[in-house]
């Protein structure tokens, strides 16, 4: 029983990071209608930048974190500006843009393999240690994951409700063409969505590096988790995506109770499949999708 509870705790921590990645994916998708398959590449690049800064260049942690966030935002915004926007201008189809995004993920992964090789790296940090609360072991990374997710999602909520840019982004989620009829949602807003969405994978990049280490395949895996979380939550609904990501983290950790942890992806896609078959609108999709 304690073991199960321990796994639940691990699940909440992992799920917090998936939640952020899923929210980022959902924000990008809902505002720009881009199926940003390269979302995980953003996370992978940020993670390797963080690793390089901390262990190779021996930068102080704050600067390494800043670099990771900067790399994430630069990659996301760069891809939007240099790849997606030119494609949208030529009326490229949804599928064409998806294919380009898929290609980007593969190229980015190969670049990382070229630079860092295929092997596993880990970042040593006191944060991966922890302490016992009764019979439960809590690591600092896990606590930090939950805290960062809570703060980021609260901040995003506030931004989307209280600022002009946030309200316009929400209007774009409803009806981007109508925003255009008001001469408001120009391409800057797409780039803002990509900047925010990409920054939201930086916590996953950094904390996963500390917790589980780095591998080039981490990008593709996170893409799938983010997409699955967004679908489970109800595609297009930001807070649903957060819930979906959290749920997947819990499911895959609790689910491997009696199994080897190599089953995690299978559990994620099991959950996704169940939702696609029985509740395709996701957890919060139907409640907000109208007209």
């Amino acid at each position: 029983m304690i073991v199960l509870f321990q796994m639940f705790v691990e699940g909440v921590a992992a799920g917090s990071l998936y939640a952020l990645a899923a929210v980022g994916f959902a924000l990008i998708y809902a505002t720009t209608r881009t199926f940003h398959f390269a979302h995980g590449a953003t996370m992978m690049l940020a993670a390797y930048a963080f690793y390089q800064a901390v262990t190779v260049w021996q930068w102080p942690a704050v600067f390494a974190v800043a670099l990771a966030v900067a790399v994430a935002v630069a990659f996301g915004v760069g891809v939007e500006r240099l790849v997606y926007q030119p494609m949208r201008r030529t009326d490229a189809s949804f599928l064409t843009i998806f294919a380009a995004s898929f290609g980007l993920l593969i190229v980015a992964t190969n670049v990382v393999v070229l630079l860092f090789g295929n092997s596993f790296y880990s970042v040593d940090s006191t944060l991966s240690r922890g302490f016992l609360v009764g019979p439960l072991y809590l690591s600092w990374v896990n606590l930090l994951s939950v805290a960062v997710a809570l703060v980021s999602i609260t901040a995003l909520q506030w931004f989307m409700r209280r600022t002009r840019t946030g309200v316009i982004l929400r209007a774009m989620m409803d009806d981007a063409a109508l925003v255009g009829v008001f001469g408001l949602g120009d391409r800057r807003y797409g780039m803002i969505a990509f900047a925010i969405g990409s920054a939201l994978v930086a916590p996953a990049a950094i904390l996963t590096s500390l917790n589980a280490g780095l591998q080039p395949s981490m990008g593709a895996l996170l893409t799938l988790l983010a997409i699955a979380g967004a679908i489970v939550g109800g595609i297009g609904n930001l807070w649903g995506a957060a819930l979906g990501g959290l749920l997947l983290g819990i499911a895959e950790n609790v689910g491997v109770w009696q199994l080897s942890s190599t089953w995690k992806p299978a559990i994620t896609f099991g959950v996704l499949l169940i939702f696609l078959m029985f509740k395709p609108d996701g957890l919060l999709g139907a409640a907000t999708r109208r007209s």
Partner: peptide, 15 residues
């Protein structure tokens, strides 16, 4: 904009 409040819809016009 269905998921925006009435007040937010009006504000879009102002902006």
């Amino acid at each position: 904009f269905p998921s925006l409040t009435v007040a937010e819809n009006l504000r879009m016009g102002f902006w």
